[in-house]
Simulated assay, not measured.
Amino acid sequence: MFAKKTLLLAMFMTVALPLQADPLTVYGKINVTAQSSDEGAGSFSELKSNASRFGIKGDYELDGELSLVYQLEWEVDLTDDANEKNIKGRDQFIGLKGSFGTIKAGRNDTALKLSQGKVDLFNDYEADIKTLWKGENRMNNSLAYISPSFQGFSLLVSHIMEDTPEGKDGQSFALLYGDDALKESKLFASVAMDNEVNGYDATRVTGQVKVLGQLKVGAGLVQQEAVATGKKEDGWLANLSYPLDKYELKAQYQTLEEHKGFSFGTDYKIGKDTKLFAWYSSFDFDNKVDTDYLAIGIEHKF
């Protein structure tokens, strides 16, 4: 009920937009798939809402060449029952931006999570890299810093507060190079590290390069260690994507020790902000039941 009231308040604020001196940006994404899923007990059909979202954000000029930045974003499940589980918070913060960079306080994606850029070709789907790898964290009680870009390099830092007497602060760091959309540069690369974030230490290296015109080649390496047990695991990722007229063809392979998964699919643009897509994903787990998914879907951004 509280989440619904919060979202209604946000919608009211957008209606009152012309009356505000502070300009708001309303944005969102609706992504729904119809899919056949097999998670070990036999295949079944289902509709999935893949991190569909709604948000408002602003950038308000202050004195002294400072700007106030803020964002309120919620995930909306179009296929779930209309109850409190239908809406949940995503990145929500307030911060200051200046020549020193940007500092944000609230609920934020960690530096390590952000460091992947757009390398994960199946982000938000069943083959999202979080299926095998730890480190895809959005943390409460976090302070985030984003440095200005210098010669193509930028620094991301996250500090997660302990929140309880028994807790322990966590940190996440990332050094990025290039443009993650590969529009201003042909190379994007990052190295990142988590220190006691959500029960894990992790180190990750990711990169993506544009070759032979429009062919994008991506890769990643990870090492993660459970803080409680000291168990270490290593993995790697490789993928390809290629635009062909209105289509984009893509394939991805990911491992973590003996676990492995592969995916392939295609997107088809039917408008500036709208696409149809289809994909197939299969995971072979060493210590649990294998999974297979086949999906077709539609996405619209606003």
Rank of each mutant, 00 (worst) to 15 (best):
Y70T: 11
A21F: 12
D179V: 04
E225D: 12
Q116P: 12
V211M: 09
L187R: 00
F283T: 08
L66A: 10
N140Y: 10
E225G: 07
T255Q: 00
S172Y: 00
I160P: 00
I298Y: 14
G218I: 03
R138S: 07
P148M: 08
N141L: 13
A278C: 10
Q224P: 03
K210R: 09
L24A: 13
L47N: 13
I296C: 11
K183A: 03
R107D: 02
A41M: 12
D201F: 10
Q224E: 07
F12R: 13
I56C: 04
G58Q: 06
A174T: 00
L24I: 14
N108H: 02
H259V: 02
T206I: 14
T6L: 14
Y280A: 08
N195Y: 02
G135W: 00
L221M: 04
L221E: 01
Q151W: 08
D292I: 01
K130S: 15
N123R: 08
Y145P: 03
M193P: 01
G64T: 09
Q208D: 05
G261S: 03
V76K: 12
K4C: 02
A82T: 10
E257R: 13
A51E: 14
F277P: 02
D292L: 02
E61Q: 06
Q252F: 04
N50H: 13
D273K: 15
I94R: 14
S154K: 10
Y268W: 15
A226F: 06
F100W: 05
S154Y: 11
N195H: 03
E39S: 10
S99I: 09
K260G: 00
S158Q: 08
E162R: 15
N195L: 07
N198M: 04
F12Y: 07
D179E: 06
S49A: 12
T274A: 15
N239R: 14
F264I: 04
L78I: 05
E73G: 11
P23D: 09
A226W: 06
N123W: 04
E196R: 11
K29P: 03
W236G: 15
G178H: 00
Q35A: 15
T6A: 15
W74P: 08
L47G: 13
D179Q: 09
Q208C: 06
H300N: 13
M139F: 07
G265K: 06
W74L: 12
G271W: 09
F93M: 06
A228W: 05
T79F: 01
G64K: 04
E225Q: 14
F283W: 04
G40P: 11
D124Q: 08
L244P: 05
M193E: 00
Y125R: 14
V211W: 04
V209R: 00
